[in-house]
Write a protein that binds this DNA or RNA. Structure first.
Length: 491
RNA sequence: GGUACCGUGGCCGAGUGGUUAGGCAGCGGUCUGCAAAACCGUCUACAGCAGUUCGAAUCUGCUCGGUACCUCCA
């Protein structure tokens, strides 16, 4: 726990030294998905970013409670006066129960996240399971005078709040500017000010998902769930709150306002925001209709895809960019990532079988690389820099393998710690399908075939040996002839 | 219109007041029966203009271009 961790705090827009509230412990809350559609490439970004954060903290010995919610109620559809939420609308279309929809997409989200090798959160609360907590939150805000009732709905009183506190601390927006520039939407007549946001919404009769409350039969507002659930599981004050940059305003600004209005504390010490994935320079998003789902990526079934890309390739692709930069999708970039990843994975395999020379000497370079990698990761999760240093280690492995460099047993241990431990434990990069049950059978068969090929080669029957190589290639098995015989790997 | 951010070599993508990012692709070589892989060497940069400075891709100003948020969104 010697290492200092720096994180860019969206509150100050600066890199800050991370100091936990409780020594050696981290409370992390991340905004999860709204489960009304298949998870897409955009979802992979925060999934992987905060996974690295959690893994890094744990690697350094911190105890982390990682809370990521599932939003299964509460997000209103575009036009406010319809008063229906997304889950309910989709349910009517597909003739399914709202909770059935939520369940389908929750499971598909989980499956995709597992394929991307992200660790599950410690707690994954659902908004629908925390209606009571949200009602309590709203009641507190009402009691403190920062909300009002109108037609059975409760709205947050931004102007009243802004007299005592500051609405806009996170987003840098000014109330005056917001007032001058708010678009006039329909159905705003219940509100005192167009900036005010719903804490509780009275449900229209045809609305499916609704709950009893002191004010009406209805449902909680857009931002209530995160304030209620983060406080429940992490306390009134906790370390880190993460999410996509698109949530910064209004969602996170409103969370801060709700937290402050109900408990007098803004609640969060460090706000982290990951940037967007773009396609042709434009944000990839559900509402823009230009998104590619994760399953389409894994299967190659999307017209924009030249072919399928494995989950680990996607993970590597995302790690090659810093989380605060936009990342542009393209087939060329994914194919480059795929090759780079393969190179890394090969080195991780090869490092275990390197031959060593006797002696106690230690190659200082290896220790230096180890330090550089960890420094980069602790410097606001700079995964691209970490990877670039890991590739220096890959070079060492290849040079040793090639015989142009010699290392001692000590070096080998250090090199293995560096490549295998950091890649698998912190970056979550590892060989896919490594636990295949039929692996032993495949090993035996391929080795047998390669023995036959060896005989052909010995007899200079290259037609046969090349045929074997080509056929194996077609099956996805790559042959490398080395001085010590043929090696093979599954592509 | 308001508020932020960005513009890097063939592509992706870091970094930063003076020193090689890295990956992919390209080129030359080593190795090989041939290939693949690997290794060695090598090429192509910091939108434009002006300023600060001994020195700027990095700081400042302006211009041009782009993006995000302001409405659900990772």
């Amino acid at each position: 726990m010697e290492r200092k961790i720096y994180l860019t705090n969206s509150l100050s827009r600066k890199k800050e030294l991370f100091v936990p509230i409780n020594k050696g412990m981290v409370g992390l809350y991340v905004c999860g998905p709204t489960v009304y559609g298949d998870p897409h490439l955009g979802h992979a970004r925060p999934g992987i970013t905060y996974d690295i954060l959690v893994r890094l903290f744990r690697f350094l010995g911190y105890k982390v409670r990682y809370v990521r919610n599932i939003t299964d109620v509460g997000h209103l559809v575009g036009d406010v006066d319809s008063g229906e939420d997304k889950i309910a609308v989709k349910a009517k279309l597909e003739q399914l129960e709202p909770m059935e929809i939520a369940q389908i997409y929750t499971l598909s989200y989980h499956a995709a996240m597992r394929k991307l090798n992200t660790l599950p959160p410690s707690i994954e609360p659902r908004a629908s399971g925390h209606i009571m907590e949200q009602i309590d939150l709203v009641q507190n805000i009402l009691d403190n005078g920062f909300a009002y009732e109108s037609n059975g709905s409760i709205y947050f009183d931004v102007l009243a709040y802004n007299k005592k506190f500051h609405y806009g601390v996170l987003s840098g927006r000014k109330v005056e500017d917001l007032l001058a520039n708010t678009r006039t939407l329909d159905g705003q007549s219940d509100k005192k000010s167009p900036m005010d946001f719903a804490l509780w919404k009275k449900a229209a009769p045809e609305h499916i998902m609704k709950w009893k409350s002191p004010w009406s039969l209805g449902f909680p507002g857009w931002h209530a769930e995160c304030s209620a659930m983060s406080a429940k599981y992490l306390g009134d004050e906790f370390d880190i709150h993460g999410g996509g940059m698109d949530l910064l305003f209004p969602h996170h600004e409103c969370e801060i306002a709700q937290n402050t209005a109900s408990r007098g504390k803004s609640g969060v010490h460090y706000w982290m925001h990951n940037n967007m994935v773009t396609i042709n320079g434009q944000k990839m998003g559900k509402s823009l209709g230009n998104f590619i789902t994760l399953n389409e990526l894994f299967n190659g079934t999307h017209k924009a895809l030249e072919r399928a890309y494995s989950p680990m390739t996607i993970r590597f692709f995302i790690l090659q960019a810093h989380y605060r930069s936009t990342l542009d999708f393209s087939n060329a970039a994914l194919q480059a990532a795929e090759k780079g990843l393969k190179r890394m994975l090969n080195a991780m395999k090869d490092v275990k079988n390197l031959s060593t020379v006797s002696g106690d000497n230690t190659n200082e370079n290896i220790l230096k690389i180890q330090d550089e990698v960890m420094t980069a990761l602790c410097d606001d999760l700079n995964t691209p820099i970490a990877l670039s240093h890991l590739f220096d280690a890959v070079k060492i492995v290849n040079q040793v393998k090639d015989g142009s460099l010699q290392i001692t047993e000590n070096d080998k241990t250090n090199l293995t710690n560096l490549l295998v431990d950091i890649n698998t434990k912190v970056l979550g990069l590892e060989e896919e399908n490594s636990s295949d049950e039929s692996e032993g059978l495949v090993d035996g068969l391929v080795n047998m075939i390669l023995d036959v090929r060896k005989d052909s080669k010995a007899k200079k029957d290259f037609a046969t040996s090349d045929l074997i190589r080509d056929k194996l290639n077609q099956l996805g098995i790559q042959i490398k002839d080395t001085k010590d015989g043929a090696e093979w790997s599954i592509m």
